[in-house]
C-alpha cells in the first residue's frame, strides 16, 4: 500500500490539498465511456433539455470519483477503509468543482488506526454538491 499518514500528520481540522476542476461536456462523455453509464441526461443535450433540464449534467458518481481522487491523494492509494456520500445537488458544465477533505478525528479499530474525514464537493460559490465521510488506515 502507499505510504500511510501518521497520527501527527492528521490533527483534528487538518485539511487535504484542495483539488479544483471546471467541468466540461467532454468530461461527462469521458466518464460515460469509462463507467458504462450512458444515461442520456449526462451526454445528450437534446434529450436533457427536452426533459426540462437546463443542460446535460454530471453523473453523481463522477463527483464521488473526483472526491475519491482528493482523498487518495491525501491518505495514499489503498489506504481508504470506508467512503460514503449523499448526492445533494446536480453538477453543471462550466461549474468549477472544489474538493474539501477535513480531518474530524482518529480512532483504533481491530488493532488498526484510522483517520476520519469529512468530505464534500462544492462549486466555486460554495454550493454543496456531494457530502459525506471517509476513513483511512494510518500508521503509528
Amino acid at each position: 500500500m502507499a505510504k500511510k499518514l501518521t497520527a501527527s500528520d492528521v490533527p483534528i481540522g487538518a485539511t487535504a490539498p484542495e483539488l479544483r476542476h471546471v467541468l466540461t461536456r467532454t468530461d461527462l462523455v469521458r466518464y460515460a465511456g469509462a463507467s458504462g453509464d450512458f444515461n442520456p441526461m449526462h451526454h445528450d443535450e437534446v434529450k436533457a433539455t427536452g426533459a426540462g433540464q437546463p443542460s446535460v449534467f454530471g453523473h453523481g458518481m463522477l463527483s464521488m470519483g473526483f472526491l475519491a481522487t482528493a482523498i487518495t491523494s491525501y491518505v495514499g492509494v489503498g489506504n481508504v477503509a470506508e467512503f460514503s456520500v449523499r448526492f445533494a445537488k446536480q453538477t453543471w458544465p462550466g461549474e468549477e468543482l472544489v474538493t474539501q477533505v477535513t480531518v474530524t478525528g482518529t480512532r483504533e479499530e481491530n488493532g488498526t488506526t484510522l483517520v476520519d474525514l469529512d468530505v464534500r464537493l462544492t462549486n466555486a460559490e460554495g454550493e454543496e454538491k456531494v457530502l459525506g465521510n471517509a476513513s483511512a488506515w494510518i500508521g503509528e
Binding site: 489503498g78 477503509a81 460514503s84 456520500v85 449523499r86 448526492f87
Partner: peptide
C-alpha cells in the same frame, strides 16, 4: 429515479 447515496467499505483495493 435518483441516485441518493453511495458508500463503499474496503478490505483492500
Amino acid at each position: 429515479i435518483l441516485h441518493g447515496e453511495q458508500s463503499f467499505s474496503y478490505h483492500r483495493a
